[in-house]
Simulated scan of single mutants.
Amino acid sequence: MNWNKWVRQGHRWVSIAFTLVSAAIFLALGLGNQPAEWVYMLPLLPLLLLVLTGLYLFALPYLSRRRPLEKT
C-alpha cells in the first residue's frame, strides 16, 4: 500500500474514532450525566488529525497535476 492509501485509510479510521467519542459525550449529556471537564477535550486530537489528513487529501489532485508525467 502506498503513502496516499495509508493516509486515506487512517483518515477513515480516525473519523470513526472522532464520531464515536463525540456521540458518547452527547449520549452522556442526554442521559443526564455531567462528564468531567477533560472529557470535552477528547475529540480535539482526532479532530486535529482529521484536519491535517483532510487537507493533504484535498491537495492531492492539485499536487499530482503539477508533477510531470513519468515515461514508462
Rank of each mutant, 00 (worst) to 15 (best):
M1R: 09
M1G: 13
N2I: 03
N2P: 04
W3L: 13
W3F: 14
N4W: 13
N4F: 14
K5L: 12
K5T: 08
V7P: 10
V7R: 01
V7G: 02
V7S: 06
R8G: 10
R8V: 04
Q9M: 14
G10T: 09
G10R: 01
G10C: 10
W13A: 08
V14A: 09
V14L: 14
V14N: 00
S15K: 00
S15V: 03
S15E: 11
S15A: 13
S15L: 07
F18I: 02
F18Q: 08
T19W: 12
V21I: 15
S22W: 02
S22M: 12
S22A: 12
A23M: 12
A23Q: 02
A23I: 11
A23G: 02
A23S: 09
A24C: 08
I25Y: 00
I25M: 03
I25P: 00
I25H: 00
F26Y: 15
F26K: 09
F26Q: 02
F26H: 10
F26I: 12
F26G: 11
F26T: 15
L27R: 03
L27I: 05
A28R: 03
A28W: 12
L29I: 00
L29E: 06
G30C: 05
G30A: 07
G30Y: 09
L31F: 09
L31N: 03
L31H: 08
G32D: 06
G32I: 01
G32R: 04
N33T: 11
N33P: 05
Q34H: 13
Q34G: 04
P35T: 07
P35G: 12
P35M: 09
P35Q: 07
E37Q: 13
E37Y: 12
W38V: 06
W38N: 13
V39F: 02
Y40L: 05
Y40T: 07
Y40G: 02
Y40S: 08
M41P: 01
M41L: 15
L42K: 03
L42Q: 09
P43D: 00
P43G: 02
P43V: 04
L44Q: 11
L44N: 08
L44K: 03
L45A: 15
L45G: 06
P46K: 09
P46C: 10
L47F: 10
L47G: 08
L47W: 06
L48I: 13
L50S: 11
V51S: 10
V51N: 00
V51R: 04
L52E: 11
T53E: 03
T53N: 04
G54E: 02
G54F: 01
Y56D: 03
F58M: 08
A59C: 07
L60K: 03
L60D: 11
L60V: 14
L60Q: 11
L60W: 05
P61Q: 02
P61Y: 07
Y62T: 12
L63W: 05
L63T: 07
S64I: 13
S64W: 06
R65E: 14
R65C: 15
R66F: 08
R66T: 10
R67W: 07
L69I: 05
L69K: 15
E70G: 04
E70S: 12
K71R: 15
K71G: 09
K71F: 15
K71M: 15
K71D: 13
T72E: 15
T72I: 14
